[in-house]
């Protein structure tokens, strides 16, 4: 799923299509998520721009609060974009924008049955992640912290537990504020990160997109390279052998 890039870009929060385009190019992503809205509110231009850049579209169900709404939106997205991919969001309340686990699991099960490739935005609960994997989701996308908060990964231990609990890709979605958060996600073993606000609302979105690109690459390399264990005391890096004596 992530041959070209381990960074999925969200499109919410960008000041203009031009700024979004620059950020997409700088991020190196090949997968961009979009919402579905009424044509009069959405305005033209987004999809032609994504097509021109050659990036894949990952439709999402942003704004849905029930399984029924999310399932319907997913079916409309499949019609619109001719893809089985769906980033499934079923939000619990508008204060936290955290997922409603009960509705999410219900929607995920239905959509898997309808032949979708379901990527659910979920909480950092390892048990719920496993339940989502069990019903056939293609990946799980736990929140590091609430959407748009920029608080980073509030419970790294849970992200690591999720990584160990499921055999499908884990994508850190929501909460990333800056490059080090993205690196940490990758170091914890995530297969990818999904970033929107941290890039689109940065002072210089294209520069932050480039920073995130490098952060993800660095974190992934560090994860696969295998870090040294943390130790309480120092371990000398230089041998005493051959040391001059006086």
């Amino acid at each position: 799923m992530f041959e070209k890039s381990r960074l999925i870009l969200g499109t919410g929060g960008a000041n203009s299509l031009a700024a979004l385009e620059e950020a997409i190019v700088a991020s190196g992503t090949d997968l961009v998520t979009v919402a579905l809205r009424r044509v009069d509110a959405a305005g033209p231009g987004l999809l032609p721009m994504l097509d021109r850049l050659g990036v894949r579209v990952l439709p999402n169900t942003a704004g849905c609060y029930t399984a029924g709404d999310a399932v319907k939106t997913a079916h409309l997205a499949r019609e619109a974009f001719e893809t089985d991919l769906i980033k499934l969001e079923v939000i619990g309340d508008d204060r936290t924008l955290l997922p409603d686990g009960v509705e999410l699991l219900r929607a995920a099960e239905t959509l898997v049955g309808d032949g979708f490739t379901v990527l659910p935005y979920t909480s950092d609960d390892p048990i719920l992640a496993r339940r989502l994997a069990d019903v056939g989701c293609a990946a799980v996308m736990p929140a590091g912290s609430p959407i748009g908060s920029g608080l980073g990964i509030s419970n790294p231990h849970h992200i690591r537990l999720i990584r160990q609990s499921v055999d499908i890709p884990v994508v850190l979605d929501a909460g990333i504020g800056t490059a080090s958060d993205a690196t940490l996600a990758m170091e914890l073993g995530c297969d990818a990160v999904l970033i929107a606000s941290a890039i689109t609302r940065a002072d210089d979105p294209a520069a932050m997109a480039a920073a995130m690109r490098h952060a993800v690459l660095g974190g992934r390399l560090a994860y696969t390279a295998g870090r040294i264990p943390r130790r309480f005391h120092a371990v000398a890096s230089t041998s005493d052998e051959g040391l001059a004596r006086w």
Binding site: G10, T11, G12, G13, A14, L20, T33, V34, A35, L36, R37, R38, V39, A41, A42, G43, L46, L47, L50, V57, P59, N60, T61, A62, G63, K72, H75, L76, E79, A80, F81, K87, E89, A196
Partner: peptide, 30 residues
């Protein structure tokens, strides 16, 4: 009226008095 109309049938499906139609497309978000 809440039911998805596949694009391949758009030209064949007539609208009726009182129908509620949603026409949606890609927007920034999510």
């Amino acid at each position: 009226n809440g039911e998805v109309v596949p694009r391949s049938t758009w030209s064949a499906v007539p609208l009726a008095e009182g129908d509620a139609v949603e026409v949606l497309t890609a927007a920034q978000g999510g």
